[in-house]
Design a protein around this nucleic acid. Structure first.
Length: 710
DNA sequence: AGCACGCCGACT
DNA sequence: GTCGGCGTGCTC
């Protein structure tokens, strides 16, 4: 039992005289040999440059190890190894040191390390998983996000599953035949984009997808065209459902064997097997969620990301890279085409167009009008003038739209996500707090914001309970289910289905039904689309003091409205929001690109990201101050703050980056103009490494492109 | 971060 | 003369 380590190494390496002697020696002395220190080294390239698997920025460099002759064959670049690391070193002897995992990055003839190299302890697997190409990508991502290379590699290389490695991957299939352009003919530049892919070029486009159910097929055709041209392709989607839709469309187009699906619902072993199939060149195309952004597709010809505004594209593990940014890096590094698509458009995507990096890929106005539903608004003024509102509890336009739609097919009701905005009730009698004008629910749109109506937006200072006269309120959370019950009572003849975070409904049949859903969980209608949709979600978002509030509300609306039939087929959408608001206008006119362009212009004027690059430095006050003092920031850098961080509301589950309970943290923002982003990240990373190495007080957290800058 | 080295004071 | 406090600095 005491010899497990060395025995395993021995049986792996194959016998060699000296090592057997070493082992016998160890067995006699009852102490296993701790290293291969006395074993002969590889004759050619006896040095292995190793990335140790420790995500510490001050250890963010390679370490050289000696390659024992017995490992010469297996210790190739990219393989996983175990090495001793961390012990002090005296008299050229290495004692102790913990075994940690790492990757061989390179084999070399000599080391520039002045001391005596420790030997590799073990080659864990002969599979070259950290290929030079993947390493280069990880390096770029680490630099972009001021993070540690090892952290990024952890995100990029899945954990080893020995059983999956033992199975051979099937031989690569011949490229499929090029598909017809299909729905891409609806876009003036669509066929040209496909032709460029077919010619092996690297076109880049920001794609404003037409409303309707065709986007998975169109995305599949772009991937298949790339495959037909003999190159690899990669698509990242916000969730498993969207990935499954694209998977289905691609399989229908080219059959099995040309691509793999990389999502969380496949277990780790299946996932690793598919990852290996890509890495071994057995399969050339991947469809998946966020983690697929790093998938080792060979000879990458196209990267695609769908609905890049969805927050799940933001990795939550350090250094929190965003799928769109990683794919942009990949497209540049690997000479691949890029397709950034969605029904909505992010400011970042608009910037890709604005800077000329990508070209717009959008339908012309007549095609948009032909595909989009009719969108109507119900705002403050309308509700106030609406005599029916008080009794119907819903503005009459909304109510009529529901009623008419339900005669023709399923109707979608988009409600705020549970917990987004607690609704308020009388503290004494629990009667819901309702708007005096339209009977909509009252809520506080933010901690310090006035009480206002969730439907019409009317502010309600000095509220008093209509039932008992009480003026104090208590918060109650009303989610999709409760809304469903309330609406169901208004339409007793119609079935009510709900879809939300815990119960996501994939599809609904083409029959009258009220479908109540939170944003992102909308079931896909099986028929020609929802007959109508009622969007109750937006007011919560529009009331938030968040930079992205408008963009995010519009994205939720567009994604729901895209599931509704075209206006010509009776499709109608009612959004409860003020018609003068910019995102509301963009929805009515179905102009996501215009909204993103205007938003981008605003951001440029205000010096906000993504036009400037921002970093957030947070932590205890002295840590933030210390890091900013140490950092040699670019000359144009502007430090905003630090300011005290808001204490998380009690009851909210603690998230990464939240201060520990009772501590008052601060946050500073550092802003640099376009072009200085790399210098900013490098300066912060260097400063953090220096402070960690010297252990100067508590560490500060550094985040590039922080998501939540109010 | 670990972890070992090493330079100083209380004990056998 | 030796054990062990934790301050300091390195990890191939």
């Amino acid at each position: 039992m005491s010899e497990i380590g060395p025995r395993r190494e021995q049986s792996h390496q194959g016998p060699a005289g000296e090592q057997l002697a070493l082992l016998r020696d160890a067995a006699r002395k009852r102490t296993p040999p701790r290293t291969w220190r006395d074993a002969p080294l590889a004759e050619r390239l006896p040095v292995a440059r190793v990335l140790v698997d420790k995500g510490l920025v001050h250890l963010d460099r390679y370490f050289d190890y000696a390659v024992p002759a017995a490992m010469d064959e297996e210790a190739r670049p990219g393989v996983r190894v175990r090495v001793r690391f961390g012990a002090g070193q005296r008299d050229g002897r290495r004692e102790g040191g913990r075994l940690i995992n790492g990757f061989v990055v390179e084999r070399r003839a000599e080391s520039d390390f002045p001391g005596v190299l420790a030997p590799l302890a073990q080659v864990l697997s002969t599979e070259p998983v950290l290929t030079p190409e993947l390493l280069r990508l990880c390096r770029s991502v680490a630099d972009r996000y001021a993070g540690a290379l090892a952290d990024v590699v952890t995100l990029a290389v899945p954990p080893r599953m020995a059983r999956a490695e033992r199975q051979p991957s099937p031989p690569p299939a011949a490229p499929p035949p090029p598909p017809a352009p299909g729905g891409w003919t609806r876009y003036p530049q669509g066929p040209a984009f496909l032709q460029a892919l077919a010619a092996g070029e690297a076109p880049r486009a920001v794609w404003t997808a037409l409303p309707g159910p065709h986007w998975p097929d169109e995305l599949a055709r772009a991937l298949a065209t790339t495959l037909a041209a003999g190159r690899g392709a990669l698509a990242v989607l916000p969730d498993g459902r969207a990935a499954a839709r694209l998977d289905t469309a691609l399989t229908a187009l080219v059959g099995e064997g040309h691509h793999v699906l990389l999502t969380a619902d496949a277990g780790p072993e299946v996932r690793y097997r598919r990852w290996l199939a890509l890495n071994r060149g057995s399969v050339r195309c991947v469809v998946g969620t966020r983690a697929a952004m790093f998938a080792p597709v060979r000879d990458l010809g196209l990267v695609a990301v769908w609905d890049d505004g969805d927050s799940s594209h933001h990795e939550d593990r350090a250094p929190q890279p965003h799928a769109r940014e990683v794919l942009v890096l990949r497209a540049v590094q690997e000479g691949a085409a890029a397709l950034v698509g969605g029904h909505a458009q992010t400011v970042e995507a608009a910037q890709l167009v604005e800077t000329g990096w990508a070209r717009p890929l959008a339908a012309d106005r007549p095609a948009v009008r032909a595909a989009a539903p009719l969108v109507r608004t119900v705002g403050d003024e309308d509700s106030a003038r609406d005599p029916a509102a008080r009794s119907a509890r819903l503005p009459s336009l909304a109510w009529e739209t529901l009623r008419d739609g339900l005669e023709r097919g399923p109707v979608l009701v988009q409600v705020p996500r549970r917990g987004y905005a607690p609704r308020l009730a009388c503290a004494r009698c629990r009667a819901p707090a309702r708007c005096a004008r339209c009977q909509g629910p009252l809520a506080a749109a933010g901690p310090d914001r006035p009480l206002s109506c969730g439907w019409c937006g009317t502010e309600a200072p000095g509220w008093a309970c209509a039932e008992c006269g009480e003026s104090r309120l208590r918060a109650v959370v009303i989610g999709a289910r409760r809304t469903a019950e309330e609406l169901g009572r208004s339409f007793p003849a119609v079935p009510v289905r709900t879809s939300g975070r815990d119960h996501v409904l994939d599809t609904v049949p083409d029959r009258p039904a009220l479908v109540v859903s939170t944003p992102g969980a909308e079931p896909v209608p099986e028929g020609p689309g929802y007959a109508a949709a009622l969007l109750l979600d937006g007011w919560v978002l529009l009331g938030r003091p968040d930079l992205r509030a408008g963009e995010e509300a519009l994205r939720h609306w567009l994604n729901a409205a895209a599931l509704v039939r075209p206006h010509a087929d009776g499709g109608t959408v009612v959004v409860l929001a003020e018609a003068t608001l910019r995102p509301v206008q963009a929805l009515v006119r179905w102009d996501p690109a215009g909204n993103a362009r205007r938003e981008l212009a605003d951001r440029a004027f205000l010096g906000f990201p993504p036009v400037s690059r921002m970093a957030a430095v947070s932590g205890p006050p002295e840590a933030v101050e210390g890091l900013l003092d140490t950092a040699r920031l670019p000359a144009e850098a502007e430090v905003l703050g630090p300011v005290p961080m808001p204490v998380p509301e009690p009851g909210r589950p603690r998230r990464v980056g939240d201060p520990p309970p009772g501590e008052q943290w601060q946050r500073a923002l550092v802003r640099v103009p376009p072009g200085s982003g790399a210098a900013l990240a490098a300066a912060l990373k260097t400063a953090q490494a220096a402070r960690l190495a010297r252990r100067e007080g508590a560490p500060a957290r550094v985040r590039i492109d922080p998501a939540d800058i109010g």
